[in-house]
């Protein structure tokens, strides 16, 4: 009988920075520091705004205290449901459609070089058109309803996703492609396990750019023509010289952007955990 001696067992593979047992007080101090770093600059900026605006007599820059006291009455008496939620709904629909469309087309174009050569000039042309320009034109065709706004968001946000996905798919390592072929992975498995995962770092990059574009286009499309929404409200307040209320809309818009980017970061941390680990390992030298 041939004996198969297992080679020296592998050392424990968990190479994450192991947190040593830490006294609760020290941990609390650590969290405190992190919170201070996180909120330090916003707190300072808010304080400066507060102090400077408190003495200002300019009608267009009301004191921050006025703005904040207008915030509650402006938004919590029905406007959240009447304006914020429709905006968010259109944003979500447009953004998710843009990502789905961008990834689907990007995978197709990235997979077939001939299709890419064929489509590239057209893609570059459309990408170069600033999306807000499209709003009046799309209004002619699609009216001023939700459909128009969703199409505006898609037409602007799809490009970074599409172009980054193409690059990501093209950049998948040849040994990985060879491995997938040798082990006869089926097309659907190749798509899900090799192509989409392999391109995911670039897809996420594109999706991040697309998110900020989508927010901008959501507001702009509502400013042109709408009967509700965040952008619509801000324009209405401005036209009615309700300046503190207008400022609350801008602050709310900023908060929405912040919340969405935090959600995005959480999703990214899960989807790309492997990528960060790999990058860390590579930077730590070859093992």
């Amino acid at each position: 009988m041939t004996s198969l001696t297992a080679p020296a067992a592998a050392p424990g593979a968990a190479r994450e920075t192991a947190c040593e047992a830490e006294p609760p007080a020290a941990r609390l101090a650590r969290y405190g520091r992190r919170l201070a770093v996180l909120l330090g600059l916003p707190a300072v900026l808010a304080a400066v705004w507060w102090i400077v605006s408190e003495r200002a007599e300019n009608f267009f820059f009301p004191p921050l205290s006025d703005i904040l006291s207008a915030f509650g009455p402006t938004w919590f008496d029905g406007r959240i449901a009447a304006d914020l939620l429709p905006s968010l709904g259109r944003l979500a629909a447009g953004y998710l459609l843009a990502v789905a469309l961008g990834v689907a087309l990007g995978v197709l174009i990235g997979t077939w070089p001939s299709l890419r050569a064929f489509a590239e000039p057209v893609l570059e042309f459309f990408r170069a058109i600033p999306p807000p320009v499209m709003v009046p034109i799309l209004m002619l065709f699609l009216g001023i309803d939700t459909l128009m706004k969703v199409v505006v968001i898609v037409s602007g946000a799809v490009w970074p996703v599409l172009l980054n996905t193409v690059e990501g798919v093209r950049g998948i390592d040849r040994p990985l492609r060879d491995t997938a072929r040798v082990y006869r992975l089926r097309p659907l498995t190749r798509l899900r396990t090799v192509v989409l995962r392999g391109a995911s770092p670039q897809i996420v990059t594109g999706a991040r750019q697309a998110l900020s574009i989508a927010i901008v286009l959501m507001v702009i499309s509502e400013m042109f023509a709408a009967n509700n929404g965040l952008g619509f409200s801000i324009v209405q307040f401005q036209r009615g010289f309700a300046l503190p209320e207008m400022w609350t809309g801008i602050i709310l818009l900023g908060l929405v952007g912040l919340a969405l980017s935090l959600i995005f970061r959480a999703v990214e941390a899960t989807v790309l955990a492997w990528y960060r680990g790999q990058r860390r390992a590579q930077r730590g030298g070859n093992r």
Binding site: P175, L176, D178, T179, V182, Y183, R184, L185, W274, Y275
Partner: peptide, 29 residues
Amino acid sequence: MAVVFQDYARSLFPWLTVAQNVELPLREK
């Protein structure tokens, strides 16, 4: 037929664990 490539680091799927890497071709079979 199975193939082991020279470039081991680039022939394993970095987003799959060791066991998942070994298991994937078996799923397909």
